[in-house]
Design a protein around this nucleic acid. Structure first.
Lengths: 221, 221
DNA sequence: TAGATTGTTAATCGATTAACAATC
DNA sequence: TAGATTGTTAATCGATTAACAATC
């Protein structure tokens, strides 16, 4: 929404194929998932089919995919395996990412055990909490470390992504410390707007906000 | 992204002040939260301040708020309490909503206990799972009901909103049954695209996708 | 009155999509 | 060749934002 999209100053290392429009980036994971589902059944698929299973307009699908190295064959469609690999490459999913989670409450623990993360190459390597009762617990064989040790542990385990699942009050401090420890991207579940230095990308997932938006469309009746 | 924004056919009951642009609707909860935080400290606040604490451009703030009944006073700003109430009214948060959750795994349980929901007037009234081991458990004093009883329980407890926290395979069936039971809005955490009849609003929260988007901006390096 | 800040206009920018030529 | 489907253009639509008159 109000992200600084990385690009710090002039000539920065931009992702593979030059910069993709943000709206396109947000759809690539949808296509990727659809292709993984399709992979077993067919070797080729059309923009029409991809549109069908992602809920995106077919012209949109073609436009999005045209930003990648030409992946389609006119009259035939896209090769499922090839396109899948190109999408992975474009998203930077050819390597794995180590992830640290701050907050070992219900949400933090659920995220630690979330199977979808591992499936797409994200490995949870650290979990933090302030509560002495929780420190030392093992969630999914990740021990809960004290928040005081955040910088050391994050650096030690080489986490590149931080997830904030703390109360709102703690979110900014945790973010600052994640960044100080070298984290480059943050996924923030706390209902707070974070200020971070340029070059650090923040995405916010606000669960209450999602329900409030649904409430609006329910029509206040 | 690809939502049917409700409006079924011609003359439907639209929310209060005519239809707001979707992008505006998505920001109203941000302003609301900022105002609630501000409420203790000051009785009035400027678009500049609201911009500051939501990360939105000040002109955007004014434009968004101008869709509401005129809330601001030139030269002074917005009355915090008044604007807060107007935002609540616009979002349909003057009443509470009953919510059913399908899937009592880690995520479903975390959502059931998520404090932010109750705070904004959403009450979890039912929780479902297929696993006989889980059925009968109480999470936050909500008993886990068998998925087979979904329609009956949803109707019985008057849930208007359904949350899907099941595996992707089960998501469409659960959605169909939620809708059959009268649910009008669905928040879908399963990595699946749901097909629902017009008039039912679906929002998707895809946790893996969020990380994949971060991976992209990390620059694949 | 002077200062502040809204509400609104108009320009700009980015995203979406229909249509179709290119081409397998 | 005929049929299919991409890649791309151009039109449209919606969202953002600077600027400023209105006005408290």
């Amino acid at each position: 929404m109000h992200l600084d999209f990385g690009v710090t100053g002039g000539a920065s290392l931009t992702p593979m194929k030059g910069n993709l429009p943000p709206a396109t980036v947000a759809r690539l994971p949808l296509y990727l998932r659809a292709l993984i589902d399709l992979a077993a059944g067919q070797s080729t698929c059309s923009s029409e089919e991809l549109a069908e299973c992602t809920g995106v307009n077919p012209a949109q699908v073609r436009k999005d995919l045209s930003y990648l190295e030409a992946a389609g064959v006119r009259g035939v469609g896209y090769r499922v395996a090839t396109l899948r690999d190109q999408l992975r490459a474009a998203l930077g999913l050819t390597r794995s990412y180590r992830v640290a989670i701050a907050g070992a409450g219900n949400l933090g623990r659920a995220l630690t055990m979330y199977p979808g993360f591992m499936d797409s190459g994200f490995e949870i390597v650290a979990l933090f909490d302030v509560d002495p009762e929780r420190i030392g617990d093992e969630i999914n064989s990740i021990p809960v470390s004290p928040l005081g040790a955040l910088e050391d542990v994050v650096r030690d385990r080489g986490a590149a992504i931080g997830i904030i699942a703390t109360p709102a009050e703690a979110a900014q401090e945790v973010a600052d410390r994640f960044v100080a420890a070298g984290v480059q991207s943050i996924l923030n579940f706390a209902p707070a707007i974070l200020k971070v230095k340029e070059g650090v990308v923040v995405r916010r997932v606000d669960l209450s906000t999602e329900l409030q938006i649904l409430a609006y469309y329910q029509g206040a009746n």
